Simulated assay, not measured.
Amino acid sequence: MPVTALVSAKSSGVTTSALALALASGRPTTLAECDPSGGTIRSGFLQNEVSAGFGLYHLAKAERVGPDALANAFASHLWPLDDAGHRQLLPGLTDPAQAAALSRTWPSLAHIMRVLATQASQDVFIDAGRLALDAGRLHPTLTPAPLLHQADLVLLVVRGTDQSLTLARHLLKPLTAELSEHGSGSDALGLLLIESGPYRAHQVAESLKLPVMAALPFDPESATYLTQGGPQPRGYKRSQLLRHARTATQQLEAVAARRQVQRQYAPEPASTQLAGVLERLNHKRKGVPHG
């Protein structure tokens, strides 16, 4: 299954899109909220159900102990997004100041994501947030670049508006260079279009010279629920957003599979250090203790 990272030039619905994809997938799914500027699912969709003692920041300390500690900490900090525990969240940072502590953790975390996808057959979505640049390159602290390097697909989330396309255009050169030099190639980069604004998918693709790999409808009621939580809207499970998100996950899997065949990628073997992650995910209880 693919590892898909979502990014944006500015607030374009990255978190809402990533959450919709994770909830709509027909397979076991992990969503990692890795935006260095801070996570919002904890206080929004989860309505502060998860305390600050739980989530991404705590993996930095575990990584300094060693691979086994990181693998076990990762499994311990996943929070169920559904009653069966088939969809799980790694909650994000509660304070942007915590991002600096994760600079050496990102590569190890990227490897865990890869193992989840190849060995545990999970859909893995990474909310990498708004990209920050430094001298024309991805910022070393404010962007989780190693997660993008190891992703099968990197989706630049845009809306069909002049403002969104203009902002996105400034990221194309540095992001393409980053994936060419350190990732799996520039063809990992594509667009996720939020269908808001006058421009259709073919116009957006032509404007940015990138393929639209998936599209999600502008569905304010469902998007508000995913952003803010609260009572579930009537008909939410049959909403346009979830229906199109389900289709999008299938499209992304197909694109990633084609890339793998074209490049003849071989699945990485699960390392012994990550055995704890797989064992705990495969035999995980339906719930986890509230931290």
Rank of each mutant, 00 (worst) to 15 (best):
S12G: 05
G13A: 04
G13F: 04
V14L: 02
T15L: 03
T15M: 05
T16V: 13
T16I: 14
T16F: 05
S17D: 02
S17Y: 05
S17T: 04
S17F: 05
A18K: 00
L19C: 07
A22F: 09
A22D: 05
A22N: 03
L23G: 01
L23C: 05
L23A: 02
A24T: 03
A24Q: 01
S25K: 12
S25V: 11
G26E: 07
T30A: 09
L31P: 06
E33D: 10
E33I: 05
C34W: 05
P36H: 00
S37I: 00
G38K: 12
G38T: 09
T40L: 01
I41S: 08
I41H: 08
F45T: 06
F45L: 14
Q47P: 02
N48Y: 11
N48P: 04
V50L: 13
V50I: 15
S51H: 11
A52L: 12
A52I: 12
F54K: 15
G55K: 01
L56F: 00
Y57S: 14
Y57N: 13
H58T: 06
K61C: 11
A62F: 08
R64T: 12
G66Y: 12
P67R: 11
D68P: 02
A69F: 07
L70E: 01
L70D: 07
A71D: 12
A71N: 02
A71M: 04
A73P: 09
A73V: 04
F74M: 05
S76W: 08
H77G: 12
H77L: 13
P80V: 04
P80G: 07
